[in-house]
């Protein structure tokens, strides 16, 4: 396993560097931030001072080496907007995104397993129709629409929930999580359903039934275990999307996560903060992918053998 992890780390390093360089160059293609931070009457000297003070006068290669050197020492520089350490801002925002992402995935996975298994076990049943409805909805309705409609129905019309913000305790979580969960729940339900349909018709399930195993035991102990691997892969991809910043949901609901911070940084041409956020999410996604691989190995003996080899 250690060898596997080492190999995985090495192979992930290249994409990580590509992401770091990509965000560095792409951010600088969006233009000089001087107009945002200086008055219209700024003299050439004042513009030059601003550029020099923020290291924007060096060649792009010098800036890149400075940036990479900073990454190695975990010094990403300071925010142009707030003057705060960029790393501190990113680290402060990230846990809120993780909370949102894990809560969403927890609900999505549990919901998908229950609905997907039921739908596979009883085709054309209520669960099967719910499963189809969820997948259609997930594919066709954008996040922001759900969010706005949710606000107007549950906050304004019914008065059950706060519109936004994070100070309302449990109630604050409902709309952001409900908005976010639609897509992963819909996708995962379909994956679980498909995998379970295959698993339930497999010889080992028939064997289990012939040995007298009950319906629940067949589903949970035999079919579901074998259907879990493809669901885990898809769940991993969906989780990556959530960790990368649930930008729309965080922006609409004022959730203090990294997605909102990234958007603010892009609009404010706050390169240091943007780079810190991207690196943090890239590393997290790298770690998550390793965890998914480990989970895959735990679920599938064939993979485990390859890993051990």
């Amino acid at each position: 396993m250690t060898g596997f992890l080492r190999r995985r780390a090495v192979t992930s390093l290249l994409p990580l560097i590509a992401v770091l360089l990509g965000v560095f160059f792409l951010a600088r293609l969006t233009g000089d931030p001087a107009n945002l931070y200086l008055p219209v009457s700024a003299t050439p000297e004042q513009r030059q001072n601003f550029i020099e003070a923020n290291g924007l006068d060096d060649s792009i290669w010098v800036q890149m080496w400075d940036y990479l050197g900073g990454v190695l020492t975990l010094d990403f520089g300071d925010s142009l907007r707030t003057g705060e350490s960029a790393a501190a801002m990113a680290l402060r925002a990230f846990p809120a995104t993780l909370q949102l992402a894990f809560s969403t995935m927890l609900i999505a996975v549990v919901g998908a397993v229950v609905i997907g298994s039921w739908a596979a076990y009883r085709p054309n049943s209520v669960a099967d129709r719910i499963s189809s409805f969820l997948s259609m909805t997930a594919a066709s309705v954008p996040d922001f629409w759900f969010a706005i409609v949710g606000v107007w129905i549950f906050a304004v019309s019914l008065g059950w929930l706060p519109t936004s913000g994070v100070t309302g305790g449990m109630a604050s979580w409902v709309l952001p999580v409900a908005t976010l969960v639609i897509r992963p729940l819909g996708v995962l339900t379909q994956v679980v359903r498909g995998a379970m349909v295959s698993a339930l018709s497999a010889p080992y399930v028939r064997l289990a039934r012939s040995k007298g195993a009950g319906d629940l035991r067949v589903v949970t102990h035999h079919a579901l275990r074998n259907a879990a691997a493809p669901a885990l892969t898809v769940a991993g991809d969906l989780m990556v999307g959530l960790i990368n910043g649930a930008v729309v949901v965080e922006t609409i609901f004022g959730w203090p996560g990294i997605g909102k911070l990234m958007i603010d940084s892009i609009l404010g041409r706050d390169f240091a903060v943007l780079q810190a956020c991207v690196l943090l999410t890239a590393v997290s996604i790298f770690v998550l992918n390793i965890l998914i691989d480990i989970g895959y190995a735990l679920l599938d003996a064939r993979v485990r053998e390859k890993v051990s080899a």
Partner: peptide, 14 residues
Amino acid sequence: LVASGCTVANSEYV
């Protein structure tokens, strides 16, 4: 999540 009292990280100031 329950143990955290459903408090959102980075929101203690709010």
